[in-house]
Structure formats: C-alpha cells, structure tokens
C-alpha cells in the first residue's frame, strides 16, 4: 500500500470564513497504481494534490491523515514535510510552463536545487541526461534558459525534474490542459512510461478531462464539492458509473469511451455548491435528478463490488 488517506480535511482561510475545499477525503493507492482524479473545476482536485505535498499560505490542515509507505506525512508542518518532498512525494504542477526560474539556465537551476537538497549534481547528471533523452530532449537544454524552449519542451523538462529522485507518489495536476491534442497524448504516454520504468511508484493524475484520464488510469476517483463521490476501475467508471454525478459527467462527454478528444466537458445544469457553507446531506442534491427526502441525510459510502465505492443513497 503506497498511500492511505483518511478523512482528510483542508480549508482555505478567507475573510468570510473557512472554505472547506477538502471535507473528509479518504482513499488509498496501491503500488504501481495510476489513479485519475476527475471532477468539475472548483471541486477540490488541486487542493487534494497540494495537500499531499505543500500547503500554500492560506491552506490549513484541519484533520485527517495521509500515510505514505507506512510513514505519516506531516501535512501541516511545512519544515518536516521538506524532507519528504521530491524524494517521496513530488508534483508536476498545473503551471509547468512557468515553473522554471526564467533567469537561470536549466542545468544550473537543477544543479543548485540538487545541491540545496544535499545531493551532488554530478552524481545525477548522467541519469538526468538519460531521462531527458527518453522524453525526446537533448543534453543541450541544460544550457538553455527556459525562454529558449517551447511550451511542450518546458513541460517535459519539468516532468523529468519532478521525477528525478524516483518519488513513491507523483501528483500530476492538469498536465495536459495547456497542450494541443498530439502533445496531450505524448504527455499521457510519458506518464505511463515513467511508472513502467519505475521512476515513480504511484501517481495521482488530476484532470477535468475524463476521456484523457481514462486512457492511462487504472482507477478513477470522481470528486464533487470537496468529497470523493465514486471510485472504481477506469473501465467501470466509464462503462457503468453508479453515482448520478458521474453519470452526468459521462453524459457530458462527447462520446462515451472515446479514444481522446479536445472537446471539453459540457457543463451539467446548475452549479456546485459553495464550499464556504456546504449544504448538509448529499452535496449533489440540488442538481441531482434522483434526489429524494433521504438525500437530506449524509449518504453512506457503499461498496457495490470489489474496488467500486459510491457515496449515494441510490447506489444499488
């Protein structure tokens, strides 16, 4: 078992009060598993990814735990987390295009970062070059400033850099959103290759594009309003989703089970609830065609079959 998250609660502090972006998230991730994390924008995907590696200034760890390889991650303790970052948990951020210091040559920046982490650049240089070549770059990029690379090249540099220390867990946040279709496919394949070659053990691939994550994920988790509402093998989520929200998401796909497409999800009628004051009971209630009285109470999480969990009163 690589990662075990239990009842994780992370809030954003705002002037109006706490935004409960993660409100009791539990799931686990096996060795070698790639899990896709899907859901509409604003449902807390980025927050979940960041919670596992680095809370920003406004985020607060309110409760719950995350255990990685048997060791609890000190989520709220920025200093203690530092030792685990990059080596054990790493991230390919949403903003890969601007993730590199614009005024440093890429090689120099990597060297300084490694040295700051107590590692020797010379020791990693050969492996670094090997991996750059693996993603279709040459050693020459180390002598370039970020501005000299195209967007796709920068993304690949970041992918290599983020996984250089062979982390157990990699979080890839919307890594394909900024790319065109061909590049999206290449990046998705690279992620799988990194897992297959053992550069990373497990991966959480965050996306709002179900059709893309379907191609690479073993498991898909669907998030809604700060909670995970359904988790199942990728095949099952696409072919026989149980949760009404997942169904709506799939219905909003241009074509079920399609290869890939750059058409974005059409929106589901209505808007997700605000997380400053989330409604009690099922949070999808206001938009759910099946909603009934019992939905005013918190729905239970039902295991409909091995590996397929749904939080809905009407799951069966």
């Amino acid at each position: 078992m690589t990662l075990e998250v239990a009842d994780l609660q992370v809030h954003y502090r705002t002037l109006k009060g706490d935004v409960r972006a993660l409100d009791g998230v539990s799931f686990s991730l096996a060795d070698g598993e790639i899990v896709g994390l899907a859901g509409e924008s604003g449902c807390g995907k980025t927050t979940l990814g960041k919670s596992l590696i680095r809370l920003d200034g406004r985020m607060r760890h309110v409760g719950g735990t995350a255990v990685l390889d048997g060791d609890e991650l000190p989520i709220g303790d920025d200093k203690a987390m530092n030792a685990r970052r990059w080596k054990e948990v790493s991230i390919i951020p949403q903003y890969s295009m601007s993730a590199l210091n614009p005024t440093r040559k890429i090689g120099k920046m990597i060297a300084e970062l490694l040295r700051a982490r107590g590692k020797s650049y010379r020791e990693f240089k050969d492996e670094l070059v090997r991996r750059l070549e693996l993603v279709g770059l040459t050693e020459k990029v180390l002598d370039n400033y970020p501005i000299e690379l195209s967007g796709g090249m920068k993304q690949r540099v970041v992918m290599v850099l983020s996984t250089l220390l062979d982390p157990s867990l990699l979080i890839a946040d919307e890594v394909t959103s900024a790319l065109d279709v061909t590049n999206q496919r290449a990046v998705a394949e690279t992620l799988v290759r990194f897992r297959d070659m053992g550069f990373v053990k497990s991966m959480i691939v965050v996306t709002h594009d179900l059709s893309l994550v379907y191609q690479i994920a073993d498991t898909i988790m669907v998030m809604y309003a700060g909670r995970i509402v359904e988790k199942a093998p990728a095949e099952t989520i696409i072919k026989s989703p149980k949760h009404p929200y997942t169904r709506a998401l799939i219905g909003a796909l241009p074509e079920v089970g399609l290869e890939y497409g750059d058409e974005r999800l059409q929106s589901i009628p209505g808007k997700p609830p605000h997380l400053l004051n989330p409604p009690t009971g099922c949070r999808f209630r206001a938009r759910c065609p099946l909603a009934s009285e019992e939905c005013e109470a918190e729905p239970p999480t039902v295991t409909v079959e091995a590996g397929h969990e749904v939080s809905c009163w009407k799951a069966n």
Partner: peptide, 9 residues
C-alpha cells in the same frame, strides 16, 4: 512555488 514543492530550502 515549484521550488518549494520540491523541498528547496
């Protein structure tokens, strides 16, 4: 942010 996520001091 990226540097800090990678544990840069």
């Amino acid at each position: 942010n990226y540097l800090q996520a990678l544990g840069a001091p």
